[in-house]
Structures are given as structure tokens and as C-alpha cells.
Amino acid sequence: MLELTLQAIYTGLLSGGFYALVAVGLALIFGTMKVINLAHGELVLLAAYVAYATESKLGLNPLLALPIAMAVVVSAALLTYFLTNHIKKDRELNSLILTFGLGIILTNSLLMVFSANIYSTSTEWFFEGVVIGDTLFSMRSELLAFVVGVLSLGGLYWWLNHTWHGRAIRAVSSNLDAAKLMGMNPKQAEMWSWGVAGILATLAGCMLYTTSVIHPPIGHGLTIKAFIITVLAGMGSIPGVLVGAFLIAIIESLTATFFQSSLSELASMGIFLVVLIVLPSGLFGNKRIH
């Protein structure tokens, strides 16, 4: 029983690293622009499909697809940014509908190009087992996704705190007017945040392809999960994203182990609603949402 619990927590922890990677791009843009990019999950999926195409058509390791996927996804993210920027009024709500529409376009484009089939990686290296301390089991790819996730979040945290562009993003997100008065160009900071979100989505997409299966409709579910984690985290808190992702993933994994895997999503949604209602500003948010 203990062993089972530990394994469930371990599995949850590993997928939590991946969830954090998916969510952090959404959280970053939300922090800078108060825009929820409902096409974020589709951007992740787009990267996963580029990895699939690289592997199946060129016969390369899907990780080598990263540069191509990055070029594709970052351009898509920047395009989304420019379109969002053209919204004339009530950007907060209209951007939701706009990015929702863009998500539909992306999903259906993937459906047209790659059909509704389910794909997963054929590189066996990823499937091999890794055993830690005789009991805790995982696939190599899961461990890799966890490491990539945690490192990316660490890197992002460092970037936001120690580089000029990162600081500019934080300045714009905490007080737009003051940042403008200091001579900052908010558009540039916003563009950087979308670009970086694109890079993070690419990493997430490649990890998605190596750990799991892909087919067009899952992008929407990824967006929902990313949004849930962002809300749990509280606005713009990077450590919060990591904690929120671990929380959601471990709860899902425990529910799947001790009850039913079909109920795991119900459990995470339940946690989300409870937090949303009890602590509307999230676990790590310091501002009230209004």
C-alpha cells in the first residue's frame, strides 16, 4: 500500500513537471497582458506534430525537431500576438473569443494535414524503464519531461529576474503606466513574452510527443489544464505554477491509482473550483482579482 502510494506520488510528480511546462507559457502571457491565450494548448500540440513529422518523414530523433518546431511555434505565437493586438475594444474578453477561434483553426488544420489518427513516438529509447531506489518506476521520457520542465521554469525565473527583457516584462505586468513613464515600450515586452511562451510551448510539445500520444482534439484539454494551473498559481507567479502543477498532477495520479482513472480529471477540476471560490487570487497570488 505504501509502495503503491509512493509510486502514485512519484508518477504524479513527474507529470507535474510536464504540466508546469505546458502551463507556464499561458501564465507568462496572462501575467504580462491579462490575455488568456486559449490557443496555447494547440500551440503545444503543433510542436508535437512537428516532432512527429520530423521523426516519421525524416527519420530523425524527435528531439532534433526542436529547432524547426521552435521556428514554427514561435511564429504562430507571434502571429497570435499581432492579431490580439488588433482588437479594438474590450480586449480582455474579445481576446478570449479570438484565441478560441484561432485554436479551432489550428486543431482543424492539424486534422486536415495529419488526419484524426493517433500517433506516438517510435523511438524506443524513450520507452525504457528507469527504476529509482528499487521501487519507483518511470519511463525515460517521463523523467526527461520532468527535468526539462523544472529546468525551463528555473531558467524562466532567472530570465525574468536577471535580464533586461525579463525585468521589462515584470515591470509591464506589475504597472503598465509606470513602465511607460520610465521609457519602456510595452509592446516590445509583450512581444518578448509571447516569443518566450512560444519557446516553452515548443519544449512542452516535444515532451508531449515523446511521453504520450497525440491526436488533434487534445489541444483544447491542454489549454484547460494550463489555465487551471495558472489560476491555482495566482497571477504571474512562476513558483506558483510549479506547485500548482504538482498539486494537480499528484491528485490526478492518486485518484487514478486508488479510484478510477476516469475520475482523475473530476478530482483536479474539483480542486480547481474549490480554490477558485475560496481563494480567488490563487495559492501564490497577492492581488485580488477584480
Binding site: L96, I224, V231, Q260, S262, L266, L273, I277, I289
Partner: peptide
């Protein structure tokens, strides 16, 4: 309870509710 939330928060809380109802109908 979601009415306490504004704008995008409400929109997405409702999305989460819809998901819950679908899971309940399946279960």
C-alpha cells in the same frame, strides 16, 4: 459561486463546470 469571478475567469470556470458535467454523465 463562479459569478464572483469576472471576465475571463468566469468564462473558464464555466468551461470547467461543463467538463465536470460530462464526466458525471459518463460515470
Amino acid at each position: 459561486p463562479a459569478l464572483r469571478l469576472h471576465g475571463p475567469y468566469f468564462a473558464l470556470a464555466i468551461l470547467a463546470y461543463a467538463h465536470i458535467f460530462m464526466i458525471l454523465a459518463t460515470e
